[in-house]
Amino acid sequence: MVMLPSDIVEFLHGPQIMALGTRDATLRPAMGRLLGAFAEGPTDRISFFLPNVQSEPHLTNLADNGLVAMTAGEARTHRNYQFKGRVVAVRASTAADAAIRDLYRDKLIRYFREEYFMPLPDEFIGGYISEPSTTITFRVAKIFNQTPGPNAGKPIDFVPAEG
C-alpha cells in the first residue's frame, strides 16, 4: 500500500494557492489555476478541480501525454510542494466535488482575511470562476519541496507505486 506523506496531504487540504502545469505535443507549456484538491484515504492519487473556463488547452494536453505537474503553496510562508505524475481519470465535477471545492474557497477567503496583508481577499479569491469544473485525478510519481531557497527542487522521500 502506497501512501502520500500525511503532513503533505494535510497541507494539500489547507488553504493553499494551487497551480497546474501541462504541455502540448510540441512541448509548449500551459498554466492553470486550480480551485482545490484532495487525496482521500490510503492512496497515491490526488484529485483537483479545474474550472471549465480553463480546461483548454489542458484537457487536450492530458489526452496527448497525460503528464501533470501541480503545485500547492501557502501565500504567507511561501511553503510549497510540487506533485508530478500521470492522469488516471477525468470527470465532470459531481455535487460532492463541488462541496469540497466550495469548502476550499471559503477556507482560502478566511485565510486571506485573517492571515494576509492583502486587501479585499473576498474579491481576490471569489473572483475566480469555479462553476462548472472538471475533476482530474492523477497518480503521483514524484513530490518536490518547492519552498523558495537553496532546497527548492529537492525530492521528498516518497516511494511511488509500481508501474
Binding site: 504567507r76 511561501h78 496583508f117 519552498t147 523558495p148 531557497g149 537553496p150 527548492a152
Partner: peptide
Amino acid sequence: MAAQMGYVAAVRGEM
C-alpha cells in the same frame, strides 16, 4: 516591499 520581504524571509527560514 512587504511581499518581497516575506519572500526573502521564507528563504532565510529554509536556510
